[in-house]
Amino acid sequence: MPASSPYNALLARVPVARRAHDGAQARTAYWEYGDAAAPVTILAVHGFRGDHHGLEPVVAHLPEVRWIMPDLPGFGETPALASGAHDLATYAAWLREFAAAVAPGAVVLGHSFGSIVAAGAVADGLDTPRLILVNPIGAPALEGPRGVLTRLAVAYYAASAWLPRRLGSWLLRSRAIVRVMSIVMAYTRDRTLRRFIHDQHDRYFSLFSDRDTLRQAFVTSVANDVRASAPRIAQPTLLIAAVQDDITPIAAERRLATLFPDARLVEIDGVGHLIHYEKPAEAADAIREFLGA
């Protein structure tokens, strides 16, 4: 039985419609939340192994904005790209094409792995007035406080690729391993919220298209970070970082903010890498103030 979401009542008040866009390399599934006539549209890019559901708690706390939320190619309801390549350049090109067709002029937001894709796309010319990065990947994952766990993840994905396809795919979708990932990432001690987070990961973390695409996306996530794109982003940028994030430490996020020509950093205490689940109200407040400015 699915765990109850603490954000259901708020989210229920936001209209939502599923749509699709036929792009050059994939039919991208996306969801439109809020009033189509809203003065501001945010194009939001989710994190690794998730899909658009992960950012819904932030949507619930920012209903005055129109949200466009696609599933990344190879995740959720969007198939892998026709080229078969899922590196940063290809993801960024996909996002530029999707934004131009579906959400021209939208503010761009990226969470975690989505921060790498969003920053890369904007640095390469995606037309947006502002950029928002939540839990941005501001340093190499292998150098973070949990670099050992990252190395274990590298071995896990390598083993999944080496094993026979059926066995490797089973390993990637193992509920036990997904639960371990969820336990490691969750910071909150609130039992109801933890149940919700684990349920979200149980339901959506294994909806990737195939193991080859997943491995490529994982390699992209650990081989890149936002630092390379930051100096080439002229737009005002908001970084929403977690003080207890052990994927990118807060000290690295503070250094990252200095690499942008125009960036402000909002630090949220009492949360790790799951701001979108554990502190969505605080994230929404920071976004609202940034947009108002």
Rank of each mutant, 00 (worst) to 15 (best):
R166M: 04
E32S: 04
S174P: 14
F75R: 05
A29N: 11
S83L: 04
L291Q: 11
I250N: 07
D245V: 08
R189H: 05
G138K: 02
R130G: 05
V184N: 13
V16T: 15
M185L: 15
A263T: 11
A80F: 03
R191S: 14
I287F: 04
A26E: 01
L133G: 04
D212K: 10
R166P: 04
V122R: 00
P140R: 07
S4Y: 10
S112K: 08
G76K: 05
S5K: 10
R27H: 08
A139H: 07
E77K: 10
R151Q: 14
S4W: 06
H53E: 08
A176K: 14
P140W: 09
F260W: 13
R146E: 14
T41D: 07
A283F: 10
L214D: 04
I137G: 03
H198N: 07
V134D: 03
L265M: 14
A286H: 04
F75Q: 07
A36M: 07
V59I: 15
A38Q: 07
A123R: 07
R179F: 12
M1I: 08
A3N: 10
I68F: 05
Y156M: 05
A26M: 06
F218P: 07
A251F: 13
L133M: 12
D246K: 09
V117W: 01
G105I: 00
V16F: 06
M181H: 12
F205P: 01
V154S: 09
A119C: 08
A85E: 09
L274D: 11
G138N: 06
F205V: 05
L214S: 05
L207A: 12
A284M: 06
L62N: 10
D71I: 06
V226I: 06
A251S: 15
I275P: 01
D124V: 00
A159Y: 02
D127Q: 13
L95S: 02
S174M: 12
R255C: 09
L95W: 03
V222A: 03
V40N: 00
V16S: 11
A176G: 12
R179K: 11
Y187G: 08
I250Q: 04
R227A: 09
D245E: 14
L152A: 15
R18D: 15
Y30S: 05
V122L: 02
G34P: 06
V14A: 07
S83R: 04
G272K: 09
G74W: 05
F290V: 13
A176S: 15
G105L: 10
V243Q: 15
M185H: 13
A24D: 14
G144V: 04
E64Y: 06
R232Q: 10
A139Q: 08
V107L: 00
T258F: 03
E77F: 07
A286P: 09
V122Y: 02
G120S: 02
H86A: 00
S169C: 00
I137M: 04
I116R: 00
R130L: 05
D262V: 09
G292E: 14
L88H: 08
L10H: 04
N8R: 14
A242K: 09
I275V: 13
R195N: 08
G168E: 12
T258H: 15
F205D: 08
L238H: 08
G144I: 05
I240L: 15
I247V: 11
I240K: 03
P136M: 06
A12G: 12
A263H: 05
P145W: 12
Y156I: 01
A44S: 13
P6H: 12
G272E: 15
A241E: 12
